[in-house]
Nucleic acid binder design. Structure first.
Length: 481
RNA sequence: CUGGGUGUAGCGCAGCUUGGUAGCGCACCAGAAUGGGGUUCUGGUGGUCGGAGGUUCAAAUCCUCUCACCCAGACCA
């Protein structure tokens, strides 16, 4: 197997030099998005959208398997509805876009462009729900939301983003909690099995939780530069909204009661995560399960007798096995150009087929993740490629896990923490007193925040590593996107 | 919102100091040869210099105002 001599391409700034620039270069050169005329709003181009579609189909299937149904609620929400839950409006008001006119006439009541849909959905739920017999409500919607962000970056933070939001109602507190954790687990399964991104799961601190939630659970991933990305959240909303919106039902005892409520969502931000976890200096690296094209076939010296025929035959053979295959027979580009192009786009396997291979009853297959290439016999080729895709998927998850573990460390003091955050950002495991004041102090000094209070607690001390008071939880700390 | 920076062809840039009517590379189009790691040659298309106003015989270039975008903070999926 021959390894590449060059580990970069000229259009992409190496990530060691300037990670944010590397990110921007990658998304632009690989044709995932484009900037629109409106600041902060991105156009998702076909290649980028295909990634989202694959995330959608994975999740949509799991949502339906767990009894959820899709529906659609309106884009605009009357201001009065947004006001109903105090904590919620306080959290979202600063980033809401408002519609004030219909045509030339000023509206009697402003309408907000949804930043999330709890309020409008609860308003409708309160009209619908009558009896415990109807519960649980298990609804989800795929839509976009708008949050007027001050600074934006494609996929990671845009003023409008695509997501799904699930909104469920339950008879009991226990059922709501169970639902909240079930959905978080589905997200985790998706992150690891589809995106090949290992995640840490746990609960958010009071400061970091969703505005209006009883408790927020999160999955956090570590990016290549050592910063954390909140990759999905699931909220147990308790009765906060159902009380505020007067959603009630007659329970089994004939008493009026407010149901328990959850909401959960993941967004196109996940695509930014995939880029920053797996990408390298040659561009994107896509896990096979997610890749819109899993195998690209490049014919070599295609004008020569039989090359193209064989290439098309191969394409059909692989497609029949259920693989997503592309064949590039554009004569205007050299093979070398195509190699670079498809590597940049992160396609997991490249197959080269030329006169020499045909003579030897083989093809050349190159792995994008480790940039290795070698001959593979035509006999049993499909099985080998299917298996290779599987191996790549597994290896990518393992590689990301190793990277995360290598960049997760224990600290022994606040000084030590500051030092480590400055030298080599990553996840720091620390003991914390549980107080908001302490958390805010740490953030002001280090820009790092509590990413989560992990489900898997470790006892690494009695005292808070930041203020010295009695410790309540072990937490993951990091600088975040 | 605070601090810094940049606006000239689709992208990256030069020209501005010392005003004279716009140029280079890539991309794109046509043709030919090439084809196992960004192939070569030839010919071509495309902008009036972010916008407005001013100075001047003459403004990409000088002056004033304005808008947009980028980066770093603060705020956030």
């Amino acid at each position: 197997m021959g390894k590449k001599d060059k580990d970069f391409v000229k259009e992409i700034t190496p990530m060691e030099v300037d990670f944010p620039q590397w990110y921007t270069d990658v998304i632009r050169k690989t044709d995932l998005v484009d900037y629109s005329p409106v600041k902060g709003f991105m156009v998702i181009k076909p290649y980028g959208y295909a990634l989202w579609e694959n995330i959608q189909s994975f999740l949509d299937k799991r949502f339906k398997e767990t009894g959820h149904k899709n529906c659609y609620f309106p884009l605009l929400i009357p201001e009065s509805l947004l006001q109903k839950e105090a904590e919620h409006v306080e959290g979202f008001a600063p980033e809401v876009a408002w519609v004030t006119h219909g045509g030339k006439e000023e509206l009697a009541e402003r309408l907000c462009v949804r930043p999330t849909s709890e309020t409008i959905i609860c308003e409708m739920y309160s009209k619908w729900l009558k009896s415990y017999r109807e519960l649980p409500y298990l609804y989800n919607q795929w839509c976009s939301v708008v949050r007027w962000e001050k600074s934006t970056r494609p996929f990671l933070r845009t003023s409008e983003f695509l997501w799904q939001e699930g909104h469920t109602l339950h008879e009991t507190e226990e059922q709501a909690q169970e639902e909240t954790l079930q959905m978080l687990n589905i997200y985790k399964e998706m992150a690891e099995n589809l995106l090949a991104i290992p995640v840490v799961t746990g609960r958010k601190s009071e400061r970091e939780k969703f505005a209006g939630a009883h408790a927020t659970y999160t999955m956090e991933a570590l990016m290549h530069d050592g910063k954390a990305l909140q990759a999905g959240t699931s909220h147990n909303l308790g009765q906060h909204f159902t009380t505020a919106f007067d959603i009630s039902f007659l329970d089994r005892n004939g008493d009026m009661q407010n149901p328990y409520h959850t909401s959960w969502g993941v967004s196109t931000r996940l695509i930014g995560g995939v880029i920053m976890v797996h990408g390298d200096n040659r561009g994107l690296v896509l896990p096979p399960a997610l890749a819109p094209t899993q195998v690209v076939i490049i014919p070599i010296a295609q004008h020569k007798e039989g090359v193209l025929d064989k290439a098309y035959e191969l394409k059909k053979q692989l497609q029949d096995a259920g693989l997503r295959v592309e064949l590039d027979d554009n004569e205007n580009y050299s093979p070398g150009w195509k190699f670079n192009e498809y590597e940049m786009k992160g396609i997991p396997i490249r197959i080269e087929i030329g006169p020499r291979d045909i003579k030897n009853n083989q093809v050349m297959a190159a792995r994008r993740d480790i940039l290795e290439k070698g001959p593979v016999s035509m006999d049993g080729l499909t099985e080998n490629i299917v298996q290779l895709l599987d191996t790549i998927q597994r290896d990518m998850l393992e590689k990301a896990r190793s990277h995360r573990d290598e960049n997760t460390y224990y600290i022994d003091s606040f000084e030590d923490f500051k030092q480590k955050m400055a030298d080599k950002p990553g996840f720091a495991k620390a003991m914390w007193c549980g107080e908001r004041e302490c958390e805010e102090h740490v953030k002001a000094e280090t820009a790092a925040t509590i990413r989560c209070i992990p489900f898997e607690q470790e006892d690494i001390g009695d005292k808070c590593h930041f203020c010295g008071k009695e410790a309540k939880h072990m937490v993951y700390m990091a600088k975040a996107y």
